[in-house]
C-alpha cells in the first residue's frame, strides 16, 4: 500500500509547462491549429533540452499526430485543453476534450491494439497500404516510433483525457 502511494505521488509530480485552453469549436474550426499548437508548444518547452532544435522537431511531430487524431474524432462543442507537463526526461501531453461514447470506444479500441501483438508490423503495413490510413495511425506511430506510453481515461460526464508520456530526450542523444 505504501509502495502504491509512493508510486502515485511520483506520478503526480509532473510540473506544468504549458496549457492551451480553447473552445472545442475554435480548435476544430481550422486544421492548421494542429500544426500551429504543436509547433508553438514544442518550441516553448524544448529550449532547455540537450539539443533544443532536434527535441522540438520530435515533440512537434509527436504532438501533431495526437492533435490530428483528436481533430478528426472530437465533438464541435464543449472544451479542449492541451497540457504539457514535465518530470525529468519525460514530457507528458494531456489532451482533455468533450466526447461521446463512440469517441471513447475508438480510443479504447486503439489502446487494445497497442496492448496486442505485432503493433510495429501493423503500423508499418498501415503506412504503405493502398488505402489511406485511418485516424488510428497517429497513435500507432506514437507508440512505435516515439515509444510513447499512451492511455485514455473518461473524465466525469462527457469528457475524455488522452495521455502520452514521451521520453524524447533519450532519442536526441
Amino acid at each position: 500500500m505504501a509502495a502504491m502511494q509512493q508510486g502515485e505521488a511520483s506520478l503526480s509530480d509532473f510540473k506544468s509547462l504549458v496549457e492551451i485552453d480553447l473552445n472545442s469549436g475554435v480548435f476544430g474550426s481550422n486544421w492548421a491549429h494542429c500544426d500551429q499548437i504543436s509547433t508553438y508548444v514544442a518550441r516553448m518547452v524544448s529550449h532547455n533540452r540537450s539539443d533544443s532544435l532536434l527535441y522540438a522537431n520530435l515533440l512537434s511531430s509527436a504532438l501533431n499526430e495526437l492533435l490530428e487524431t483528436v481533430f478528426r474524432m472530437h465533438r464541435r462543442d464543449g472544451s479542449f485543453l492541451c497540457a504539457v507537463k514535465r518530470r525529468g526526461p519525460v514530457d507528458r501531453v494531456e489532451i482533455t476534450v468533450s466526447c461521446q461514447a463512440e469517441h471513447l470506444a475508438f480510443y479504447r479500441g486503439v489502446m487494445n491494439v497497442l496492448e496486442g501483438p505485432d503493433v510495429a508490423k501493423r503500423y508499418r503495413e498501415t503506412l504503405v497500404a493502398a488505402a489511406a490510413p485511418g485516424p488510428q495511425v497517429g497513435l500507432l506511430e506514437l507508440a512505435v516510433d516515439y515509444a510513447a506510453k499512451l492511455s485514455v481515461d473518461e473524465i466525469g460526464d462527457g469528457f475524455l483525457r488522452l495521455t502520452a508520456d514521451l521520453a524524447l530526450e533519450e532519442q536526441t542523444i
Binding site: D35, S60, S61, N64, E65, E68, L127, G138
Partner: peptide, 17 residues
C-alpha cells in the same frame, strides 16, 4: 523536410512504391 504528417507520407510513399 522538418514536418510531415501521415496523410502526406502515405501520398508520397504510394507514388514511390
Amino acid at each position: 523536410l522538418v514536418r510531415l504528417n501521415n496523410i502526406a507520407f502515405h501520398a508520397l510513399s504510394s507514388l514511390l512504391l
